[in-house]
Amino acid sequence: MTRVVVKRLLVGVLVMWGAASLIFVIVRAAPGDPATLLLGPDAAPDQIRELTAKLGLDRPLPVQYVSYLGDVVRLRFGDSYLFNRPAMAEVFERMPATAELMLASTAIAVIAGLTLGLIAGGRPGKVVDRVVSAGTIALQSFPTFWSGIMLILIFALALRLLPSAGSGTPAHLVLPAITLALPFTATVARLTRTSVAETMREQYINTARSKGLTERQVLLGHALRNSLIPVVTIIGLHMGGLMGGAVVVENVFAWPGVGTLVVDAVANRDYTVVQAATFLVAGIVMIFNLAADLVYSQLDPRIRLESAA
């Protein structure tokens, strides 16, 4: 077990190096440079040259790359060109908003997904099951940015119940969190439905029923418990997808998280912020994937961690 974890971590270091390098290559290959952008069209060429040198962007690319890697190893990402302060500080400042959004979405998705899955799986093949199954396919198919806009249309503009954009109060969180939760809810519901339907066919369920337990007690006592394992795993595995979804949803709702930061930083050629933010996201995704694997193997002894190919 320990050996597997150590090996996984070593692979993780390799992956982080690759991820950092990949982003370095992409942002440097982009047309347009930070100095010209920062100084605007009225700057003199020597001003642009000076700022380029100050940002360290006049050095040959291999030199920039080596010093960048040296910094990354020490978890330093340099100063944001735009905000004139450490890029990672900028990212960390936006992280709580993204975390808040993701946590709220996960909570909604798990609760709604488990409920729907229990309802559908408890009566496999019945009308309820059909409706829920069809509904979840639809939920998974809505593009998040569009469902977000539709929620704005209904709840912010037509009913005037909730704010359409921005942050600050808990009410601001509701629409973005629901939007981000929709596809994930469908995943959890489908997973739960399958697991519950399987459990309901098991012998011991019949035994439980014959002991006089009500259908509700059977569902909550046995079926729900069994379906928690895959749900926990899927949370870990979906962290990447959820993070990607958050990037889009944040932009729909002007939510001041890492997603809006990255999109702005790419447009502003704020290389250091792009590098810092993507590095952090990659790190988080990796840790969650690893954690999901470990939790899964702990919860379900049938699964053993294989060392990766």
Binding site: V11, L14, V15, M16, G18, A19, L22, I23, I26, V27, A29, A30, P31, G240, G241, M243, G244, G245, V247, V248, V262, V263, V266, A267, V274, T278, V281, A282, V285, M286, A308, A309
Partner: peptide, 29 residues
């Protein structure tokens, strides 16, 4: 060859796919 492929995939999967697409598409015309 297989090892290189697996690691390369691991690296790409470190990012949410849409984030990588945003960084690439946002950087170029």
């Amino acid at each position: 060859l297989d090892t290189v492929l697996s690691r390369g995939i691991d690296i790409l999967l470190a990012f949410p796919a849409i984030l990588l697409a945003i960084v690439i598409a946002g950087s170029f015309q």
